[in-house]
Design a protein around this nucleic acid. Sequence first.
RNA 1: GCGGGAUUGGUCUAGCCUGGUAGGAUGUCAGCCCCCCAAGCUGAAGGUCUCGGGUUCGAAUCCCGGAUCCCGCACCA
Length: 486
Amino acid sequence: MSYDEVYKLSLEKGFFAPGSEIYSDAPAGFWEYGPLGVSLRNRYVDLWRRELVRRDQMLEIDGSQVMSKSVFKASGHLDGFADPIVACSKCGTIARADRMIAERVRITLSENLADAQYDKLIEENKLTCVNCKGRYGSVRKFNMMFRIGIGPRDEGAYLRPETCQSIFVDYIRLFKTMRAKLPIAFAQFGKSFRNEISPRQGLLRLREFYQAEIEVFFNPEQANIPSKKYDGIRDYAITITREDGSSAKMTCSELVQHGIVLNWLFAYYLALVAKFYSKTGIDMSKARFRELARDERAFYAASAYDFEVKTSIGWLELVACNYRSDYDLSAHAKTSGRSLVVEDDNRKVLPHIFEISMGIDRSLYTILEHSMIKDNGRNLLRLPAYLSPVQVGVFPLVNKNGIRDMAKQIHEGLKLDYDTIYDSAGSIGRRYRRQDELGTPICITVDYASLTDDSVTLRLRDSMGQERIHRNKIGNRISEIISYIA
RNA sequence: GCGGGAUUGGUCUAGCCUGGUAGGAUGUCAGCCCCCCAAGCUGAAGGUCUCGGGUUCGAAUCCCGGAUCCCGCACCA
């Protein structure tokens, strides 16, 4: 299905909506989750916990969204997360100063020049606006972090642009209190904030967004030692696209043997990511890991793979897998003056980090897009049952006293354990179709026969098939249907 | 941020050029029907037409500005 159709479903059924929309000065890049969106997201995060956090016995934390200036001084975001930009004094067009100069003067600039040096280059080469030939103003740094002021003195702090910084600053305490041993992964689901110059495509590039990040701390000398843990993924195949554009489906063993993935540890986590997404309903034949070229990588990444999925608007990056080496920990150790070294194998080690950074909002978008189908004119959201926002619909076949009462009673009995909808409006077929559109996997209908033998009809979303079961068995049957696949 | 297009009940849309205060479809709700796969009947609710300013006796409609959305460019750690 297309972006427009997902967007429409979102607005009509209450998955997502633009933020502050009743005000005409509502800023772009902020979206709200409606009831179905929250439910879908919660189930997605539950699956993430199941398939990644618990499977690998990770430690999950929930850090603060506001962090001190020092954190980002150390992390490099104050400098590295800022781009030198220059605006035309006539038409206002904004250009990246470094790229614009490099391209037009045909020189290679060293990184992080002072603003004045860019100004000098622009003047020396008589560079004018690409758009209107107007004169450029002076170069300044545009930082993508939201700065906020704390307390009456307005002390400078920032909204975190990635959740992982919380893990880096908390790690040494966690390592000690949780009796951790390398390698150990920390996980976090939460919000991050980036002041995009111009966010586009509402659900896909937000200024406030959810991430689920996993930071694997390991001893670099131990990363390629085969261990039992990796046995399960040796023959697991993933599609990988190399820097040169070539694509191949290879097993994890092959990836490591051919040096495409640096070590067993990285291969293991790439496989876990692929396994996780294969359970979300995303079409894995449209998914790949893409090796990033040096100039595509984040400033902290020594090697990087993006997990991408093909959607109606092109390949979409859902997960960034970065080898951050000891970049973060040595920077934080240096800036804070604290030792972040731990003991491993009777030696002092500054751990290296492999990161799995998942974009939640765009993952949910992709799941919706891949799940929406038309089945003989029927609008169907074919989500895995364990991700469906509503699990059970309960209907009286007809709105007559005995039947209605029993349907309500059955609904009462289910509503605390599941997300349910009771619906008595319109024909029975209409009510089934309403639930199909939301992805509800199960509908229970109470009819005349129910009054005599306490049985009900259980109707399944995908097959439209019906089962006749005793009302005492409803709970068991629902649990069966919505249980996770092995 | 630049250029272009757009913005009318929950959703889609007519009306705009040729100013005279909104019409439809679908959805929703109530009643009828009483039905196991939507789109049968009757009725109802829901819009100060994105926001602000201007022109005019009068603005959804014309003009200016802001916001948002879409498309290109730039940006995307």
